[in-house]
Design a protein around this nucleic acid. Structure first.
Lengths: 351, 351
DNA sequence: CCTAGGGTGGAGAGCGCTTTCCGCAACCGC
DNA sequence: GCGGTTGCGGAAAGCGCTCTCCACCCTAGG
């Protein structure tokens, strides 16, 4: 029967004693060893382990083997559908490899990010996957790179999900290309006067690389049809739902309650676009009729917002899966590139 | 300078040698020890550590100290806003305590859940928090309980976020009470003919405890106003967005394209409600006008669905925070209870 | 009948830490 | 000047494992 009152876990030693064999034999029977153990002995060990409710101490194994079964994932905000979708992909794929995922949140703060990496490094994960966003001219970028280099020189693997030029394994997302295609498409649909809700851009909050790429890509797409977006029509705001909401409010105050001649608002990500739609609606405008709106990412929650949002679709779960695959690959290889696909929906009916 | 070509991490030994002190002194200087170290020595150790880029091996510390700094979180589906909000709460709170969270996904399968617990147990987390949903008459419930008992008898802590009668630390969510209040409220608003989208209920998929509680609570609330929901108006479907969508489709085929006399559909959670709204809309019905819809949870993404969904509001991030607090509390105490608050919005304008 | 050699079990070293225990000095009060 | 504290450094014994190495037995071949 199970010893119910003990207070420290059953050890391999206990199992070995119970089975009447040595530690070595117990270890060999329970964990994938190359060495054979006679069937009778293995039986006894397995039974003893079962009887005692033994579960191998992963920390001790890690110390003895010199390697863990852990992968670390760093995201900006767990509750954000963009990150949680990627996380789902990573966790799902990790499980196929019998790896455990430890997750940390940067709260979109690059200084915190460095600290988190420092902390995660102690866990000796097989890989650290960074899904949190890069910033242009980030004052902590060097500190981050240094921390990651230390980690890598200790045998760890670093994977960036981002468009950035760093000496680590990279999973590039075609932000610029996707945005450009989206811009071209929308221009072809007749939109002429557009405003853009971009990510942060003040001196206190350096711009996000992702945001910049999407911004310039989109502009380039529009330019193919001779359309320009003057700087005063690009509003810098937080990369979040609330940022999108406030950005749209700002447009409304600047350009009047019907947004003047603006016929399309492009938000650099979906949560912002969705926030912008709410702001428009709260101001009495009907998105998709009074104002066209487009986003980027194609987060799953989009399926149930009305009107259906036009966006550049990213296979988010797959991003997570690929990131893990990249982390596990023997060779670093050249940066993988994930394409975005334009999805035109009701929020941009055309004109 | 940093030795950039090494392939295994810097150890405490390296630091001690570099600083010219013993292992003991290095350990005492770097980690919170009660013992004092002369300032000069501590300085040298810290400098050496910095110079070498040392980061203590958490596994080794865990083995030596006999305790980890890890907390495990088990959710049904990471990409589901309900779970990801709770996860955000757990991760945020964990960080305040310098704990690392490892996350696993049951994919809503109770058999997998047992396996995951078994795997997580090996990590010797300080606590295992189970946010995945309980099922009524779950054939794997005993196996789960046994696995958890073993874990607990090894000194671990188990926290359930659920309404269930288990001998572990419990964070009860007032599903029944919230649903009842919601039912009462809606009945008072004039709804008389209601249908309910409940969770799974076939023999292959045992019903979810949460779903059952909300179902019966809601019915009880309606009953206060003399309203009954006949069994044929309760459709069993998956506890997901798609489940909600299909459930509504089912109602539409059974009751006709305008849902006959049904004036309110209650879905036992928000993602289902939101899926149901989409199904209604796809069938040409306008939610909030042609059919009233209500949900449960108040997931953050609700802010941007139209019409705004009436629901019973749960402080999801706080649920996560409280769960962690419960896990860390010295005494198990009596089950905590988190109330739901009725939030009437546009999706149920009243009649 | 003797000897190789394959198969198997166990002793024990070692993984990177923490922490006990001991020893040495410097300091106190008398 | 002496016994008795403190204060602090280091040696070494673990923590729970893995895995090398050696010893042993059994079988096969000569």
């Amino acid at each position: 029967m199970t010893d119910t009152a003990r207070t420290s876990p059953v050890t391999l030693h206990d199992v070995a004693r119970e089975a009447g064999v040595s530690l070595a034999t117990a270890s060999r029977s329970l964990n994938g060893s190359t060495r054979n153990v006679k069937a009778a002995n293995r039986e006894r060990v397995l039974e003893a382990a079962e009887r005692l409710g033994y579960s191998a101490n992963a920390s001790a194994q890690a110390v003895a083997r010199g390697t863990t079964t852990t992968v670390a994932l760093l995201v900006g905000d767990i509750a954000d559908p963009y990150f949680s979708s990627i996380a789902a992909g990573v966790v799902g794929a990790a499980e196929d490899h019998h790896l455990v995922v430890t997750m940390a949140e940067t709260r979109r703060d690059t200084e915190r990010e460095v600290e988190m990496v420092r902390a995660l490094r102690g866990q000796r994960p097989r890989a650290i996957i960074l899904a949190a966003s890069r910033r242009v001219g980030d004052p902590h970028a060097d500190a981050l790179a240094e921390e990651l280099s230390k980690y890598e020189s200790g045998g760890g693997r670093v994977v960036f999900i981002s468009t950035v030029d760093a000496p680590f394994r990279m999973l590039h997302v075609d932000n610029a290309g996707g945005a450009r295609a989206l811009g071209t498409q929308l221009a072809a649909m007749g939109y002429r006067s557009v405003a853009i809700l971009a990510g942060p851009g003040g001196e206190d909050a350096p711009p996000l690389r992702t945001s910049e790429d999407r911004l310039s890509g989109f502009r380039a797409g529009l330019a193919e049809h001779g359309i320009e977006v003057p700087p005063e029509r690009v509003v810098s705001t937080a990369f979040t739902r609330d940022g999108g909401y406030e950005g749209m409010q700002q447009l409304l105050t600047t350009h009047g309650p019907t947004l003047g001649d603006i016929d399309l608002v492009f938000a650099v990500n979906d949560v912002m676009a969705v926030g912008a739609m709410s702001a428009a609606r709260d101001a009495g405008l009907i998105p998709g009729r009074d104002i066209a709106i487009a986003g980027f990412d194609d987060i799953p929650t989009l399926r149930d917002v009305t009107p259906r949002l036009t966006t550049a679709s990213l296979p988010l779960e797959r991003v997570g899966e690929e990131a893990l695959a990249l982390a596990l690959a023997e060779e670093a290889g050249s940066p993988a590139l994930l394409e975005a696909e334009v999805a035109v929906r009701e929020s941009t009916p055309g004109r």
